[in-house]
Computed example of a mutant assay.
Amino acid sequence: MGQSISSGDYSWNRLLKWAAGFLLCACLVLLAPLPAWAATQIRLFDLTYQDCPAEIGAGAVTPGGTTLRANCYLIIGQAENKSGRTVVDADVFGRIYDANGNPVMQNRTRLGAIEEVPPGISEFQIRVSVPYDQPTPLILEQFKASGFTTKVR
């Protein structure tokens, strides 16, 4: 008629169910996608520029290996880091045009880097060299930065 389950069988079934549940959970954890190491976006605003001080003003533009005279400028502005963590080695991207609307750095939008951007709003500056014959005032457009909260090797 009916089969009775001994206490030994009951414990064994319970152990098997527990082990199966544990293995299922472990597999789900191991197969879950790892978090992405996404770059932190930094808003750059209130941009201006000024001539470099004499001690850092020596610079050259060297297309094709030929050294040309250049003007050195510091681009100065505000950086807004909303991440709540310090960002290091943030790459700065933007477009610089001369007074006639001609690009100062043809086919190049990465202009430099900010070593450290603390959470909140902070000041930044980067140095750029502009060919000597490009007329001023310079026009600064589409500036932004991005970096990581840890050093990238």
Rank of each mutant, 00 (worst) to 15 (best):
D133P: 00
P137W: 04
F93E: 06
E116T: 14
P33A: 10
S146F: 09
G147F: 08
T149L: 05
Q106P: 04
G57D: 07
V87P: 03
P103R: 08
I96M: 00
V128K: 00
A90S: 02
P103A: 09
S4R: 11
F93Y: 10
A54K: 14
L47S: 02
Q41E: 15
V87R: 02
Q78I: 06
N107Y: 01
P137M: 05
Q134F: 14
T67L: 10
V29L: 14
F93H: 06
L47C: 01
G2F: 07
S6L: 04
W37T: 10
C25M: 13
G59Q: 08
N13R: 12
L140F: 04
G94N: 01
A113W: 09
T62H: 10
S4C: 07
K151A: 09
L24T: 15
T109D: 01
E123S: 14
K151G: 04
L34S: 11
G101N: 07
L23M: 13
A39N: 05
S7I: 11
R153E: 08
S146W: 06
V61S: 14
Q41D: 15
L28H: 09
L16V: 11
K17P: 03
V87F: 05
D9C: 08
L28G: 15
K151H: 10
F124T: 03
T150E: 10
A36K: 07
R153L: 10
D9H: 08
A79E: 03
C27P: 06
P131I: 06
R85P: 04
D9R: 13
L74V: 04
G84C: 09
L30H: 11
E123D: 13
A39K: 14
I121T: 14
K17V: 11
L31F: 14
T67C: 02
E115T: 13
R110K: 15
D98S: 00
T109P: 00
F45D: 03
G101I: 10
I5H: 08
N13F: 15
E115S: 14
P35Y: 05
D98R: 01
I76P: 00
S146Y: 07
I5V: 08
T62G: 13
L15T: 12
M105F: 15
N13D: 13
A19D: 00
T48L: 00
G59D: 05
G2L: 06
P118W: 09
V61K: 15
K151V: 08
L74Q: 10
G101Y: 07
W18I: 11
K82I: 13
S7N: 12
L24M: 14
S122A: 15
W37M: 11
F45H: 08
A19C: 02
V130Q: 03
R127F: 03
Q106E: 12
A113C: 05
E141K: 14
M1N: 09
D51V: 09
Q134M: 15
N102P: 02
G59S: 13
F45S: 07
Q134P: 06
S122I: 13
I139Q: 12
A90R: 00
C52Q: 03
P118V: 10
G77N: 02
V104C: 01
